[in-house]
């Protein structure tokens, strides 16, 4: 199991920034540019690892701890999720709750680290992050409820395996609704358009990026890396929900999973190219929309069952 954990961590760390690269390429394609190379996110993180740190005199150790917690929580959550043919090294009855709460831990530290700087901009970002994530978490749990009812399991990897495959013929529309709702949560949780804009942090309308305004060097690298891993894990869950590839040979599963991830990254890129960011007071409505989608899914399941 120890080796399984290590292998999982290494794979997740090696592949997660690639997703950002694909999104970047897609966006560049839509604006008619070549765009940065596919491996640009790796270069960015690598560059930050060679930079020194600047710490604000206002800050305490919390400012430095948040990036570490952020990345560690994201990595630990990846251990609960299967990657294609590779089984999740740690799984237990009820791990979906821990899965969601690990991100809660990371978020709490990011928010207080933003408040630690004493900057009004970061306070603004922290306040918005805290507000919107409350709603996003509720939708995430509602999606989980639908999947739990469908699969009769509280284990993340079993929840998205076998049973879902058998429920496709009967519950196809439900899975599509839940998938759509989960995709909206995915965009919100990972600070993507239309909830947040990952490309800029100086507008007063930004949420996630503005919280990392004062971080530099290794701290910033950890934050970027942690966000990339979070996108990879939550995205992987999306692919697992919607693509019924389980029961195939491990090799085929891995290929299908990889293809699914690439399609997801392109999909996010397309959304980001076609849409503008929503006005801030629209974000709750966006999340309530996601909530309603999942709720309809749940009702259909309950009526059919």
């Amino acid at each position: 199991m120890g080796i399984g954990v290590l292998v999982h961590i290494i794979i997740v760390m090696a592949l997660s920034p690639l997703l950002l690269g694909i999104i970047g390429k897609t966006k560049a394609f839509f604006t008619g540019r070549w765009g940065p190379p596919l491996f640009q996110p790796y270069y960015d993180i690598g560059k930050l690892f060679r930079k020194g740190n600047v710490y604000s005199t206002t800050t305490t150790w919390i400012f430095q701890a948040a990036p570490v917690v952020c990345m560690a929580a994201a990595l630990a959550s990846s251990l609960l999720m299967p990657l294609g043919g590779l089984k999740a090294p740690l799984q237990f009855w009820g791990d979906i709750i821990l899965f969601a709460y690990l991100y809660g831990l990371a978020r709490f530290f990011m928010v207080i680290a933003a408040l630690d700087t004493g900057s009004s901009f970061e306070g603004m970002g922290a306040s918005r992050e805290a507000a919107f994530s409350c709603l996003a978490e509720v939708v995430l749990f509602l999606d989980f409820i639908v999947l739990v009812v469908l699969s009769k399991s509280l284990v993340l990897s079993r929840m998205i395996e076998g049973n879902i495959l058998s429920s496709w013929p009967l519950f196809g529309p439900v899975l599509l609704l839940t998938g759509a709702s989960y995709f909206l949560v995915l965009l919100a949780e990972n600070a993507r358009i239309p909830v947040d804009d990952p490309a800029t942090h100086l507008e007063l309308t930004m949420i996630h990026e503005v919280m990392a305004l004062d971080h530099s060097g290794w701290d910033l690298a950890y934050i970027l890396y942690g966000s990339a891993i979070k996108l990879f894990v939550l995205g992987g869950l999306f692919v697992n929900i919607l693509v019924p590839f389980h029961g195939l040979s491990p090799m085929t599963q891995t290929i299908v999973f990889t293809a699914g991830m690439i399609v997801l990254a392109v999909g996010i890129g397309v959304v980001e190219s076609c849409m503008a960011r929503l006005r801030l007071n629209r974000v709750p409505q966006f999340l309530i929309g996601a909530f309603v989608l999942a709720l309809v899914g749940l009702l259909v399941v309950l009526i059919k069952a």
Binding site: R50, K51, G52, N53, V54, T57, S119
Partner: peptide
Amino acid sequence: FLPVAKAPTWGC
């Protein structure tokens, strides 16, 4: 090995 500096919080 890398430089570490202290500065006030960046006021944008």
